[in-house]
């Protein structure tokens, strides 16, 4: 393989039922930076049926080009069809970097394509960078249950591929009317020749708890002890109009549903404000929240690991300080409403 022939940064654009999945737009944001540093085009790879129109949105979020394959066999994600389509595009256009969202289907596809085109794939990355001189992609990821971070390199094979966790990268501000080039390709597969068939897709009705989109999360750990403690945390969340998060131990104690769990086996969140109340800061928890804009931790133990990933820390008993906070916020936010006439809720 002559790696000099490979140029350009590609992003796999996942869509579900004709709707763009956020992680693709986030990766355009991260990819824009890589493409600018390498002075190459940023390209979106868009597969599906009746999806071409979505290209305009991709241009607004930073893509220079969009490769589209629009075909009924691509209507729903299947490894066999998507792997073939993406493999063909890679062989034809030779990108140097290719990133995918680390969703169920994104990971499935990237793993299959890596084997199909025989290249390296870094899993579940959270930090992306590039050594411009060597044109070497530096993709970093947590491994060993989040106990360690590692930078993975792929020196002699192209494309250099990675899956990237949702909610870690930032979308760009869309630029309305930004234009780009659409390149249409085809796929040569007949439904009758395929071995798999998607029979049914069931999406849960709107989730009761939407941690991913919350601006403020008030999260409870085992330090809040019992139902009474959890109620106290809920009360604080209530005055702040925040969403309640939880550590796994709190979920396992039955104090709230798994929907509330933040972390490796829960959701990854990036709110503007994250309160960690009585949470020790195990890596399995912090991998899910360490990228929050501001983290405030409350814990009785001055050596709790949570303070290492927080911006502000208070060594205090949650049972003393949380009710005070609730009261202070209630007063402060009400006063504001009266003064300025702007209700926050």
């Amino acid at each position: 393989m002559n790696i000099e022939e490979y140029r350009g940064v590609w992003v796999f654009i996942e869509q579900r039922d004709g709707q763009l999945v956020d992680v693709g737009l986030e990766l355009l944001g991260a990819g824009r930076d890589l493409a600018d540093k390498l002075e190459v085009d940023l390209c979106g790879i868009l597969l599906g049926h009746h999806v071409k129109e979505l290209s305009n949105e991709l241009f607004e979020y930073g893509a220079d080009k969009v490769y589209v394959i629009d075909d009924p066999v691509l209507a729903n994600y299947r490894t066999e069809t998507y792997m073939k389509a993406v493999g063909d595009l890679v062989r034809k256009y030779k990108p140097e970097i290719f990133v995918y969202g680390a969703t169920a289907n994104g990971k499935d596809l990237a793993s299959a394509v890596a084997t199909e085109v025989m290249t390296g794939l870094t899993a579940d990355t959270t930090i992306l960078d590039v050594d411009v001189e060597k044109r070497l992609f530096e993709a970093s990821r947590p491994a060993f249950g989040g106990n360690i971070m590692a930078t993975i390199l792929c020196k002699k094979h192209r494309p250099q591929m990675a899956t990237v966790r949702p909610k870690v990268m930032k979308k760009l501000e869309p630029q309305p009317g930004r234009q780009g080039e659409i390149i249409e390709e085809t796929i040569d597969l007949k439904e009758d020749d395929l071995r798999t068939k998607v029979l049914e897709i069931v999406r849960n009705a709107k989730k009761a708890v939407n941690l991913e989109d919350a601006d403020i999360i008030v999260a409870a750990g085992k330090g809040i002890k019992d139902e009474k403690g959890f109620k106290m945390v809920e009360a604080l969340a209530d005055v702040l109009n925040a969403t309640v998060g939880a550590s796994r131990d709190v979920v396992e104690a039955g104090l709230c549903g798994h929907d509330h769990q933040v972390g490796q086996t829960g959701v990854t969140v990036t709110p503007k404000l994250y309160f960690a109340i009585g949470i020790s800061g195990a890596v399995q928890h912090t991998v899910g929240m360490a990228n929050s804009e501001t983290i405030i931790a409350i814990n009785t133990d001055p050596d709790a690991a949570i303070f290492n990933v927080s911006h502000y820390g208070v060594v205090a008993d949650a049972f003393e300080i949380v009710p005070l906070l609730t009261e202070e916020f209630r007063k402060a936010l009400q006063v504001k409403t009266e003064e300025g006439g702007v209700a926050h809720v």
Partner: peptide, 29 residues
């Protein structure tokens, strides 16, 4: 094709700014 480059523990080392106020909970709040 892939090799592991650098490895490091994930926690940020700079740590939190502690709001101590001699343990006066009201002031901390």
């Amino acid at each position: 094709p892939t090799i592991v480059g650098k490895m490091w523990p994930p926690a940020k080392s700079d740590g939190a700014q502690m709001l101590d106020d001699e343990g006066d909970v009201k002031k901390q709040a």
